[in-house]
Amino acid sequence: MYEFSRGPLVWIAFAVFFGGSLYRIISTIIQSKKDKVVLPYMKWKFSLRSIMHWIMPLGSVNMRMRPAFTIFSFLFHICLLATPLLTLGHVVLFKESWGFDWWTLPAGLSTVMTLFVICGGILFGLRRIADPTVRLVSSFSDFVLLAIVLGPFITGLLAYFQVFEYQTIIILHMWSGALWLCVVPFTRMVHMIMFPLTRGYMGCEFGYVRNARDW
């Protein structure tokens, strides 16, 4: 089991993640051609201008209206992406398989970031219940998705501190991580891939076509 999880599973997960993402991007572009009025209006300058404003913390009016939430949300997303990429344990595995590595987070920081993701995720979950608008538009699947997002972080933390049986937990960690990767292209997590496209398009509709700002 461990061997499978450590080997083929990871491959499959990455293949699904990259393949699926690529598929989503390509199919969106093809669909956009069918939509006729999308691509002719897109210009790099205006797409990037809008994207820049929205990946910069407090770069938009809406973000400035809620600075605490914005910072929290940015940190959450940063930790969510950076922690798995820069965790020593993961990088070591990369080195073993492919023979190269990169800078890693100090263990303590990595733990703090993991904790932040978990707490953040829970807070997001609570917000889904507490905020009447968000509650109205949320469904059960949103909570499941949140659980999938947090899965590898929780199991990773448990494995790190060797709570429960390490072997089981680490396999769970790998499977939840694989699940995480696999669902990205096919669930609402696709927003991570679509962000540059939707934002870039709106940036052009506002900036290039209408000579206005969209942040």
Partner: peptide, 18 residues
């Protein structure tokens, strides 16, 4: 009558209420 935009918007919305 709809193509890319409808689908992408529906899939991308994270129901954040922002």
């Amino acid at each position: 009558e709809c193509a890319a935009r409808l689908k992408v918007y529906l899939d991308t919305c994270v129901r954040c209420g922002l």
